[in-house]
Amino acid sequence: MKFPVFDINSNKVFEQIALKIYRYQLEKNPVYRQYCNLIKKTDASILEEIPFLPIQFFKSHEVQSNTQSPEITFTSSGTTGSIVSKHRVTDLNVYNQSLDQSFKTTYGAIKDYVILALLPHYLDRTGSSLVYMAQGWINDSNHPKSGFYLNNIEELAQVLKSFENSNQKVILIGVTFALLQLAEEYAMPLKNVIIIETGGMKGMRKEIVKPELHHILKTAFPQASIQSEYGMTELLSQAYASDGINFTTPNWMKVSTRDTNDPLSGIAYGKTGGLNIIDLANYNSCPFIATQDLGKSFENGSFQVLGRFDHSDIRGCNLMAVD
Results as ranks from 00 to 15, higher is better:
123 L>S: 12
154 E>L: 02
73 T>V: 08
54 P>F: 14
86 K>N: 15
258 R>S: 08
59 K>S: 11
63 V>Y: 09
303 F>G: 10
204 M>P: 00
165 N>M: 03
82 S>G: 09
8 I>T: 10
159 V>I: 15
45 S>V: 12
98 S>F: 03
317 C>R: 02
316 G>H: 01
5 V>F: 14
123 L>Q: 15
108 G>P: 00
59 K>Y: 08
40 K>I: 06
131 V>L: 04
146 S>A: 11
318 N>I: 01
322 V>N: 12
127 G>K: 01
319 L>Y: 13
283 Y>M: 02
37 N>F: 13
176 T>M: 11
85 S>K: 15
262 D>F: 09
83 I>L: 14
243 D>R: 01
207 E>G: 13
33 R>F: 11
86 K>M: 13
182 L>C: 07
202 K>A: 09
169 K>T: 03
7 D>K: 12
122 Y>E: 15
88 R>P: 09
235 L>E: 04
133 M>C: 06
178 A>S: 12
220 A>W: 01
143 H>L: 03
137 W>Q: 01
252 W>R: 02
113 Y>C: 05
60 S>V: 05
49 E>F: 11
151 N>S: 10
114 V>W: 06
211 P>K: 12
109 A>I: 05
38 L>T: 10
5 V>M: 02
75 T>I: 13
99 L>P: 05
7 D>M: 07
6 F>V: 02
40 K>W: 11
96 N>F: 12
72 I>E: 13
184 E>D: 15
247 F>I: 06
138 I>C: 08
192 N>M: 11
30 P>Y: 14
183 A>H: 08
183 A>C: 07
250 P>M: 15
278 I>C: 02
280 L>M: 01
36 C>N: 09
265 S>D: 03
160 L>V: 03
220 A>Q: 07
279 D>I: 14
270 G>P: 00
129 S>P: 08
260 T>A: 09
195 I>N: 07
161 K>H: 03
309 F>W: 02
252 W>Q: 04
220 A>C: 01
99 L>A: 10
286 C>R: 14
86 K>S: 14
320 M>D: 12
10 S>F: 15
2 K>I: 03
183 A>R: 10
286 C>E: 03
147 G>D: 08
38 L>H: 05
210 K>C: 02
171 I>T: 05
66 N>E: 08
112 D>F: 10
101 Q>C: 10
211 P>A: 08
221 F>K: 06
129 S>G: 05
55 I>S: 14
272 T>V: 06
16 Q>C: 05
128 S>Q: 01
254 K>F: 00
92 L>Y: 06
202 K>M: 07
10 S>I: 13
292 Q>M: 07
57 F>M: 13
27 E>Q: 14
313 D>A: 09
123 L>C: 14
98 S>P: 12
272 T>H: 00
